[in-house]
Amino acid sequence: MMALITGGSGSGKSLFAEQMAVQFRTEYLYYLATMQIYDDECRNRILRHQKQRAGKGFITIETPFCLSDHLHQMQSSGTALLECVSNLLANLQFDSDQQDPVTFITKEILQIRQHLQHLIIVTNDIFADRIPDSPEMQAYLQNLGKINCFLAEKSDLVIEINAGIPVIWKGKRL
């Protein structure tokens, strides 16, 4: 099954997604990490997330650009948690030559989804405010919005997390 988890910053969506991944009880559990380290703030955030998922049995795979490069590292009976689409898009849109990051990311995600038993995708809800003036940021929001709409349509389960509380938009919780 495929689940999309969205929510604002600090809403508890990562913790929720990790717990959900563990609940599938598959033999292999993969954590697809997308964040690149630019500074101490990134490093600290990564350390916090590593600490949070320590002992839960995740195998971490660093994949800031190309998810399909790592298909061979994952058993098809396994579960993967992709964290998160907003980082992946930022890497591809601002830090690569990729001309069409929306098509690229959606194809890649479908490919790993087909490869695995379960895929949990964490994305970000950053749309409910004034639209920024910068064309680059507008394009980023439009791209992330398109990816989120696409993934929601393909997912069996879509959950928004607000203050740690799940709000179900689509499907039935396990």
């Binding site: 749309f127 409910a128 439009q142």
Partner: peptide, 11 residues
């Protein structure tokens, strides 16, 4: 009501 780029018009 909804955020930017959430597909409101298409919906």
């Amino acid at each position: 009501i909804g955020g930017y780029a959430q597909g409101r018009l298409a919906y």
